[in-house]
Design a protein around this nucleic acid. Structure first.
Lengths: 151, 151
DNA sequence: ATGGGTGCAAAGACTTTGCACAGTT
DNA sequence: AACTGTGCAAAGTCTTTGCACCCAT
């Protein structure tokens, strides 16, 4: 697992669901599709709103239930910013690194090659099978720094 | 309420509170003290329970209100693991790096010198004043891997 | 004494759960 | 036909807020 460079094309939702003897419902394929085509910063409510456009009768609890299921099946990942609620994104090919402004709450992704051996080294040292890497930097963006001064 | 004599060195807390013209109350010094002497993985409820041992009439909302205040004043940091609620720890001199097992939920700290220039580089590139660095690795510890196999 | 802080209770936001029916296998 | 998944509503958990009294300044 540590050695595999990058996962091949993500398994189809149908495959994963089938292989765990889950039923393939319209709601599940829709939700997975939305998550995969999103920018990765979607929360439960946002996903629900999008889903309703395509499937008016879908229920929020269905969204939550399936988010949990997808997470358990490894189809998506849950992200925790400095905010209130969780965000979800399709399991990605690379780890994600976020930069979050404490002033205005905007979240950006940045890229920094810090983990060539982080995973391997730490995994080995602590005997962990590391599946997720989350790097969050928090601070103030330039706009918000201006605002601070103005006060 | 809580003694007027405080042998510890909350001087800086007192200073920070004073310098932002906040009042130094028994609740605040107690809470800050508890956070500082905790292992850093304390949540609001846990802090409340501890606080009640020393100050029976303290209220949960006071805990939440002050947690927010301390965060705003930069006295503590909020951490987000893969769990439900937030954890708090006294602002440290170095950034923290957590390793969290998705199986049993245990959280360990590890040390890896990855950020000598991460802060500087990213901060410069995005014009951010970076105040917090959070690195979370998630995965399965060896115990939980055993359990997985057994299923 | 004055105005911010606290306790209390109630509301709010986000998430989970019980149940009967619908839809997949 | 069997049984999982869904919609709905109600409950649960974590957190915030309004208000009257208290207390640090």
């Amino acid at each position: 697992m540590v050695g595999s460079a990058r996962p091949t094309k993500p398994a189809s939702a149908r495959q994963v669901l089938n292989s765990s003897s889950r039923r393939v419902t319209a709601q599940r394929t829709l939700l997975l599709d939305l998550i995969r085509h999103s920018d990765g910063h979607l929360d439960a409510e946002g996903l629900y709103r999008l889903a309703k456009e395509k499937h008016a009768r879908i229920n929020l609890s269905t969204v939550y239930r399936n988010l949990q299921l997808f997470k358990k099946l490894g189809l998506i990942e849950e992200r925790h910013f400095t905010e209130e609620h969780h965000h979800y994104e399709a399991k990605a090919t690379a780890e994600h690194q976020h930069l979050c402004c404490l002033g205005c709450g905007k979240v950006m992704e940045f890229d920094f090659h810090l983990t060539p051996n982080l995973k391997g080294k730490i995994g080995k040292e602590y005997d962990f099978d590391i599946t997720g890497v989350e790097v969050s930097l928090t601070g103030l963006c330039s706009d918000c720094r201006q605002d601070e001064k103005r006060k």
